[in-house]
Nucleic acid binder design. Sequence first.
DNA 1: ATGGGTGCAAAGTGTTTGCAAGTAT
DNA 2: ATACTTGCAAACACTTTGCACCCAT
Lengths: 128, 128
Amino acid sequence: MKQLRNTRQRQLVLAAVRARRDHPSADQIYLDVRAVDGRISRGTVYRNLSILEESGEILHVKVPTADRYDNRLDLHYHLLCMGCGAVKDVELPYHRELDRELAEKTGYFIARHRTVFEGFCPECRRRK
Amino acid sequence: MKQLRNTRQRQLVLAAVRARRDHPSADQIYLDVRAVDGRISRGTVYRNLSILEESGEILHVKVPTADRYDNRLDLHYHLLCMGCGAVKDVELPYHRELDRELAEKTGYFIARHRTVFEGFCPECRRRK
DNA sequence: ATGGGTGCAAAGTGTTTGCAAGTAT
DNA sequence: ATACTTGCAAACACTTTGCACCCAT
């Protein structure tokens, strides 16, 4: 395993994810960090997001169009508005027993599951 | 709403999805159809997959790297092997009550949720 | 006939990567 | 000094689109 370094760029990327309560895409993070450090490159932001995720400091949510990042560390579900694209955390418990149940049934090692609810937020409902 | 036509290409794409029991990517479908009709283009396959999904004849599964298509019409969950990338249907019931519960809680209209379990299949476990 | 559909190629998106130079340890 | 990181740009993988021609209805 590789020895990680604590670079200024890495700190900035982590701080940017933590500073947001929504679920920014990699490119939004890039823009936020860019506002502080005008020289950072997209490649560096993508690399650091991926490193921070591997090392367990952030999570990412896979939604269509672009992955989003999340500063929460516990497993939880997400809600995507198909109208405006907003992603929110869902206040429902994570069902760990499903992972166990499926592991028994299939012989797989199950690490986790990801659940994304799809719908329309009140505002987008109105607009239609 | 637009009047859909029943073109030869559309039939071929639908037949190709139905002919597979796994969860092919758009490009795999393209290759399958291409074997029958050497002139069909990628654009046409993508367009038809998207039309068939909108009209409810197929579903698609959103997994990292590339979306997969599914000939099953009922809502169900999926299992992704992070080792070999295979996608399988999961034999667990779809929890419609979660959709209702979240709708009440949030005021959203909830159409559905998508759950993808992530793990390693027995063979990939062994290989590690 | 008419408007949806097709093939082709070009353009998009979002993300990854090779490389030479820079820097944390 | 070592080897992880960076910035840059080019390359990638997947998907969408503009356009002129075609064909199902």
